[in-house]
C-alpha cells in the first residue's frame, strides 16, 4: 500500500461554538477517487479547506505528504471585473510553460477560448478553466469543490468521465464535493456522506443502502440510487444534528452505522 497523500485525523472545525466539521478521519492515496456528499451546510467545503490548509482545524491533525502538489478547483471563480485577464494569461500565472497550458486547456475542451477574457466565460467554461489550471500544475492530488457546477447535464457526465481519466493518466488522488448523486455513484470509488460528522462511508453500491444516507437525502432520492434500505442507530433533525432518540452509545455519532436489513 502506498503512503497516503493526505491524512485527516479526528479533524474538528468550530465557528463561534457551532461545529462545522466533527471529528472527521479520512485518508487519500494515489489513484483514489473520494467523493464527499451531504446536504447544504454539512461542512463539506470547510472539510476541504481544512484538508488544503486554508482553514486551521480547531482540533485534530491534517498531515500532507511533504512536497505534495495540489490542484485545487474552488467552488467558483469570482472575478473582479476590474482586472482585465485572458484565459491564456490566467493559465500562464500557474508558472507552467505555454505549451503545457495549451494542452491542459485542450484536455478540458476549452482550447478555443485561450484568447477570450475570463470575464466572458460561462459558468461551465469557468469550471473547465479552473480544472485546466489545476491540471497544468501536474498535481499529486486533485481537490474539486463541486466541479460540475454550472455545467449542463451532458457536460457533467463528460466532466466526471474526464476526472476519472485524469486520475488514471496522472496517477493522482482525487477528492471532490458533489451534489450530483447519480453521476457520482457511477464515477467514484468511495463516497463519504458528511453531515458535520461522517454519517457513513463506503463504496457507492453499499452507501446508497445505508440508512444514514437515506436519512440525509430522503427516501425518494435514495430509492432512485438504491435497491433496499435499512435502519440505523441515529436520526437527524432539519439542522442535521443528531437526535439522541436512543441512549448514546460509544459510536452514536455514526462513524459506524449499524447495517440491519429492513
Amino acid at each position: 500500500m502506498t503512503e497516503p497523500l493526505v491524512t485527516l485525523d479526528a479533524v474538528t472545525v468550530r465557528f463561534d461554538g457551532r461545529t462545522a466539521v466533527d471529528r472527521v478521519t479520512l485518508s487519500i492515496r494515489r489513484g483514489d477517487i473520494l467523493t464527499i456528499i451531504g446536504p447544504n451546510g454539512a461542512g463539506k467545503t470547510t472539510l476541504i479547506k481544512a484538508l488544503l490548509g486554508l482553514q486551521p482545524p480547531t482540533a485534530g491533525t491534517v498531515t500532507r505528504q511533504p512536497g505534495l502538489v495540489i490542484g485545487y478547483v474552488p467552488q467558483n471563480l469570482h472575478m473582479e471585473a476590474t482586472l482585465p485577464l485572458s484565459v491564456r494569461r490566467f493559465m500562464a500565472l500557474s508558472g507552467r510553460p505555454a505549451e503545457e497550458c495549451a494542452q491542459a486547456l485542450a484536455r478540458t475542451g476549452i482550447g478555443h477560448l485561450a484568447d477570450a477574457s475570463i470575464h466572458h466565460l460561462s459558468g461551465g467554461e469557468k469550471q473547465r478553466l479552473l480544472l485546466a489550471r489545476a491540471l497544468a500544475r501536474r498535481p499529486d492530488l486533485l481537490v474539486l469543490d463541486e466541479p460540475a457546477q454550472g455545467v449542463d447535464i451532458n457536460g457533467q457526465a463528460a466532466l466526471y468521465h474526464l476526472i476519472r481519466e485524469l486520475r488514471d493518466q496522472l496517477n493522482c488522488g482525487v477528492i471532490m464535493i458533489s451534489h450530483d448523486l447519480h453521476l457520482v455513484m457511477a464515477a467514484t470509488d468511495k463516497v463519504i456522506c458528511l453531515n458535520q460528522h461522517v454519517c457513513c462511508s463506503g463504496y457507492p453500491a453499499d452507501i446508497s443502502h445505508d440508512p444514514a444516507f437515506i436519512e440525509t437525502f430522503g427516501r425518494s432520492v435514495a430509492e432512485s440510487v438504491a435497491v433496499y434500505h435499512h435502519h440505523h442507530n441515529h436520526r437527524h433533525n432539519l439542522h442535521g444534528d443528531v437526535i439522541p432518540t436512543i441512549p448514546e452509545t460509544s459510536d452514536s455519532h455514526g462513524h459506524r452505522c449499524s447495517h440491519e436489513p429492513h
Binding site: Y72, M79, L83, L85
Partner: peptide, 17 residues
C-alpha cells in the same frame, strides 16, 4: 508581481499554490 497578481485574482487558489 506574479504572487501579488495571483493572490489578487483568487486568494485561496494562490495560497494552495
Amino acid at each position: 508581481w506574479r504572487g501579488l497578481l495571483m493572490s489578487t485574482i483568487h486568494e485561496e487558489l494562490a495560497r494552495v499554490e
